[in-house]
Design a protein around this nucleic acid. Structure first.
Lengths: 256, 256
DNA sequence: GTAATTCCGA
DNA sequence: TCGGAATTAC
């Protein structure tokens, strides 16, 4: 399997602070991963389809347990433009990486030891969400960072008119309102669009949202999927190849 | 003696984490320093020839003991483009620095207290090395940093074809292979050249190599000089004026 | 564990 | 050019 290193790095950066160790599933159709975060509250789902790779081959289905912190360190040894090959031996007790620089003068080989991990058997039902907010991922990061200095949780209120992020803490409170905008061609990159059946609002722990925001380098946009009485889902599409989705259950608090 | 501050700063940065205190020799022909690192394993050698200075005068030979950490702090008070004068009084119990800004509008004077230091009498024999690797110093830094996250030691294997740096640790292992290349004019800045009589390989403690890599800002290239059963020497040429050389004895381990 | 520094992104 | 984050030294 061959791919540019930078995207792989970003993927691992988007997961490693949430998940220490996880099983990764390799199958004919691609690579996938589902895992609860270390505190068993949030949930991540990664999908990389086979056709997104330059070449991809997996003769059989394999589940490999990796330490994401080690993997992150390993990937830091690749240049962003290096071509990456990932392969495993038949006994699959280690995962091998080769990085080749663009000019071919430098070839690195790294090996990651694998581990047996007790899988959190996770099943994610597809849902019909009441509201789907599609917004700039950098805007999302900015809002999460800004509200992170205000309080511990963010209330997300989605209405037809727009979406409001708000937080309150000891020193005060803050809110950011993004108005719904049909993607104006001029700056559609920043526009926020909201598809909504019914207004919905949820309070979410900022601690997790900050981690979700680490996926922003992977995608220009993030979509936030909300429904009453179920986890909120954040999706970052990874161009041409798949997505990262994060699920987080709302906090039960006074305002809902 | 007058010199641009930035180069002096870089020199001290390249030494201070390895050596706390050292004698510096001032003679008619220039400035030199030899010292073991604090753990008495690695060895540094600095040479600054008199003709590399804008002006240089040393009426007699002097050996002055300095604390490099204090010197580093002192030099941080100089602007990078300041012209530096270093001078001492006849009794030589302190070293005086003046920094003059490019526009001459600002002149700073600093004084460093000297100390008596028991010299490690160090003698470095000139050797005929079996292999000399000449490579980009930034590439060297990168490799040392990358392998630093893998293990505690690096094996350097020099052959006619190229040089391989490799390391192994708990989480896995890694290696970087640089292919030998006659300096193609196009990008000779990155090319690696290897002059070799006989293949040689040595295992070296990464802890020290990380310190050696701090000399990279002083020189675009580093040359690695290897011979069986003797310390490996790393040389960074300081343009027009001298060099820093580091010596490190190989670790005895199974692979050699 | 804290503090400083260096590097990257806005 | 400035601020923030990550890395590294004390």
């Amino acid at each position: 399997m061959i791919e540019a290193a930078s995207i792989l790095k970003k993927i691992v950066e988007a997961l490693k602070d949430l998940i220490n160790e996880t099983n990764i599933d390799f199958s004919e159709t691609g690579i996938s991963l589902q895992a609860m975060d270390s505190s068993h509250i949030a949930l991540c789902n990664l999908l990389l389809r086979d056709d997104g790779f330059k070449t991809y081959r997996s003769d059989r289905t394999m589940t490999l347990g990796v330490n994401l912190s080690s993997l992150s360190k390993l990937l830091k040894c690749a240049g962003n433009d290096d071509e990456v090959r990932i392969f495993t031996d038949d006994d699959a007790d280690q995962l091998n990486f080769s990085f080749e620089s663009a000019n071919k003068e430098r070839v690195s080989e790294f090996t990651l030891k694998l581990m047996d991990i007790d899988a959190d058997a996770v099943d994610i039902p597809e849902m019909d969400y009441q509201a789907v907010i599609d917004m700039s991922s950098s805007e999302f990061s900015r809002i999460i960072r800004d509200l992170g200095s205000v309080g511990e949780a963010v209330m997300i209120d989605a209405t037809k008119q727009g979406v409001k992020f708000s937080s309150a803490g000891d020193a005060g409170k803050g809110s950011i309102l993004l108005k719904h905008q049909k993607s104006v061609d001029g700056d559609s990159a920043l526009a926020t669009s909201i598809e909504i059946n019914e207004p919905v609002s949820h309070s979410l722990a900022l601690k997790f949202l900050s981690n979700f925001a680490k996926a922003a380098p992977l995608a220009d946009r993030v979509s936030i999927h909300m429904i009453e009485d179920a986890p909120v889902m954040f999706e970052f599409k990874i161009s041409e190849i798949g997505h990262i989705r994060y699920y987080l259950a709302p906090q039960i608090d006074d305002d809902e």
